[in-house]
Nucleic acid binder design. Sequence first.
RNA 1: UCCAGCGUAGCUCAACUGGCAGAGCAUCCGGCUGUUAACCGGAGGGUUACAGGUUCGAUUCCUGUCGCUGGAGCCA
Length: 431
Amino acid sequence: MQQDALIDTIGKHQDGKVTLKGWVYNKRSSGKIRFVLLRDGTGIIQCVFLKNDVPEHVFDLADSVTQESSVEVTGLVRADARAPGGFELTADGLKLIQLAEPYPITPKEHGVDFLMKNRHLWFRSARQVAVLRIRNEIIKALRGFLDDNGFLCCDTPILTPAACEGTTTLFELDYFGATVYLAQSGQLYNEPLCAAVRKTYCFGPTFRAEKSKTRRHLMEFWMLEPEVAFLDLAGSMELAEELVAHTVARVLDKRKQDLETLGRDLSGLEAVRTPFPRLSYADAIDLLRSKGRNIEFGDDFGAEEETVLGQSHDRPVIVHRYPAAVKAFYMKRDESDPSLALAMDMISSEGYGEIIGGGQREEDRQKLEASIKQHRLPQEAFEWYLDLRRYGSFPHSGFGLGLERFVAWITGVRHIRETIPFPRMLEKVYP
RNA sequence: UCCAGCGUAGCUCAACUGGCAGAGCAUCCGGCUGUUAACCGGAGGGUUACAGGUUCGAUUCCUGUCGCUGGAGCCA
């Protein structure tokens, strides 16, 4: 691809003349000198226009051009200690591509509702770009780790005939007269795939029609779900912590600048090294009670419990062996205590809640059928799933990682809505 | 769905116990040769979310509706 000069690598052109295309981020003027901050999608650079050195129409345009107008600037690249990026452009030309109408998002404070209605413009701002860059780095690191460890990305369908787990509310869709649902997980489909390729994962959007209205929930979010044949619960906990630690290290290595733009406290991320503390559900209950939480054995954790558990360690904590009653039907029971499921959750360290949920799957057909009945699910919809227990059944485990919660935690962004370009929230689908 | 809070200029917010609806930014005009959310002077910009009520008088108090924000439950 033919490449114009770009701001993030402008140093290559030091003392040379370049033409930059981009948008006016801000401008300042002072009589016979005018400054235009140019944003090109890779960075921001200050362009300096001197009245005595540029044609009059160029000098005039540097004053009248509006915020976010698209322009083409030519000039000399100069190192300057005063410039935030280290370089400045001494401009000699400015061409207007389109004069922007008064831009709604000024370089001042704005409210959430206003910013969300202008989401398509909001992410031109520096903080939002930093989040998008980190999100991309996280995706690359997650996929890279799995790809390098022998996983095959196979992917699973988005339109599904029945509820995967029968627990959460799904979006319903007309499928040529039949009813189908938007997938809430690729997990059941991953299981036959791991019998074919041993280690598989899927990575795509998932949908929950729950009327959740918190800073940790989206109606549409991206989930990474690895599934491995002949892997037990302990193995899946190791995989999860290695995957998370690798990804955090990678972001610290590659996107420190963006983390600093966001004002992220790096010490919280630097502490994320394996092994992560493991806590049985029973131990977690004891810990919560010792901290004054009123919780009984058998209760699932609420948001406050997750926060207490997450904040009691300097890195993510893995809780395992939950009561089977609070977990999905396909979870394998613990042989030493069949009331417990071989399930595990990873809770992030700084109050961002559960980022991973998974465990070992039931491989015994009769036990699985009993569980399907117990959960009042229609067995005929799961015959293909039961086939895996008929034709060479095998122990296997996996988990799901919620991308946006993970991004929220790593970036330190308080609300999950900023971690995806176009968040789908409760009754909010514009833009 | 439930609980709590908030709706005032394009945006962010003031307006004391009910007494003339105001500021900063943005926009427009003018000034300034190194500005960093630049600054200085001036101008325009209002059905105080909507409907009703109490009152001499309502942005302010009451009722309802709508919208938004935060939280809970559910989960990643």
